[in-house]
Amino acid sequence: MKPINEVKINLLSCSSNESFARVAVASFIAQLDPTIEEINDIKTAVSEAVTNCIVHAYKERIDTVYITVSIFDNRVVKITVRDKGCGIDDVKKAMEPLFTTAGGERAGLGFAVMESFMDKLSVRSKSGKGTTVTMTKQLSFRARSNG
């Protein structure tokens, strides 16, 4: 299916870009007039995906994070976050809530947040090649009011 609108954002994996990434995606989706909750869900999921690239895929070294946001008919939004980092050996394990390989205070809930805040989440990864996270969300059809 072809999107009716699309944007591609490539950014360097600086942690200061985490806020830029989620705000940029939210701005693009604003044309669908989503609810505040939908916008917040999407911002949170994007923040998790981009943080994973920075913390895990590139392990704090600077490389490129590739984001594609596509809008389809019927108010479906698809967001792809891709990196060319280290990849994930065991995707199933990585997606388990509370599992984390990062030390410090990472909660290990990144994928759990993406999964619960979006409708669909798929993770494709190849060790040493990189990871692609694809998330889709159906926005609600609410009655337009002037209020």
Binding site: N40, E48, G104, E105, A107, L109
Partner: peptide, 13 residues
């Protein structure tokens, strides 16, 4: 105004 799972890490810590 915004929090992702990093906030959970902060609270747990």
């Amino acid at each position: 105004t915004f929090m992702d799972s990093s906030g959970i890490g902060l609270v747990m810590g």
